[in-house]
Simulated scan of single mutants.
Amino acid sequence: MMFLYIYIVLLLEMPAVLGVSLDQGQKALIKTEGKTVYLPCKVTGQSYIHWYQMKDGEAPSRLLYISQRGDVTRDTNNPQANDFTVDKTKLYDLKLSDTQKSHAAAYFCAYWDSSSHMGNWIKRFGSGTRLVVTDPKKEIVTVPELTGYRPSKKNTDIHGKQTMLCHASGMVPDFVTFKWQEKSGAGQWTDVSEENVLEQRKESPAVTVTSMMIVDKNMAENKDYQCIVTHEGNTENPSKSLEMKKENSKPAKESKNDAQNPTCSPSTEETIKKQISGDSEQIPSMFLFVYAYGVLLMKNGLFFCIVSMFQLKRKAGKKDKSSET
Rank of each mutant, 00 (worst) to 15 (best):
Y7D: 14
Y7K: 08
I8A: 08
V9S: 07
E13K: 10
A16V: 00
V17M: 07
L18E: 13
L18N: 14
L22R: 05
L29D: 02
K35R: 11
T36F: 00
T36E: 15
V37A: 13
L39C: 03
P40K: 11
P40N: 08
C41Q: 09
C41I: 11
V43Y: 05
G45K: 03
Y48C: 03
Y48D: 15
Y48E: 14
G57N: 02
A59S: 07
S61M: 13
I66F: 05
Q68D: 11
D71T: 10
V72D: 09
T73K: 12
T73I: 13
D75P: 00
T76F: 02
Q80H: 10
A81W: 10
D83W: 07
D83P: 05
K88R: 15
K88A: 15
T89I: 09
L94K: 08
S97V: 15
A104N: 04
A106C: 07
Y107A: 10
F108K: 08
C109P: 05
A110Y: 05
S116T: 12
K123V: 10
K123G: 01
S127P: 01
S127V: 13
G128R: 12
R130E: 14
L131N: 06
D135C: 02
K137S: 08
K137F: 13
V143W: 09
L146R: 08
L146F: 08
T147E: 11
Y149T: 01
N155Q: 11
Q162G: 01
L165I: 11
H167S: 06
S169H: 05
S169D: 01
M171Q: 15
P173G: 02
Q181P: 01
S184A: 05
G185M: 11
G187N: 03
T190G: 04
E195H: 01
E199L: 07
Q200R: 11
Q200M: 07
P205F: 04
T208F: 01
S211L: 03
D216V: 04
N218S: 12
A220S: 14
E221R: 14
N222G: 12
K223N: 09
K223Q: 11
D224A: 13
Y225F: 15
Q226V: 02
T230D: 03
T230I: 02
H231F: 06
G233Q: 08
N234P: 01
T235V: 12
T235I: 09
E236H: 03
S239Q: 14
S239L: 01
K240Y: 13
S241A: 15
M244Y: 04
K246D: 04
E247P: 00
N248Y: 03
P251H: 06
P251N: 06
K253L: 07
S255W: 02
K256G: 01
D258A: 06
Q260W: 07
S267K: 03
T268C: 02
E270K: 07
E270C: 01
T271Q: 08
Q275S: 14
I276F: 03
S277M: 08
P284S: 10
S285Y: 00
F287Q: 07
F289E: 07
Y293G: 00
L296R: 07
M298Y: 10
F304W: 12
S308T: 13
M309D: 02
M309N: 07
Q311V: 14
K313Y: 09
G317K: 11
K319E: 12
K321L: 14
K321G: 00
E324Q: 09
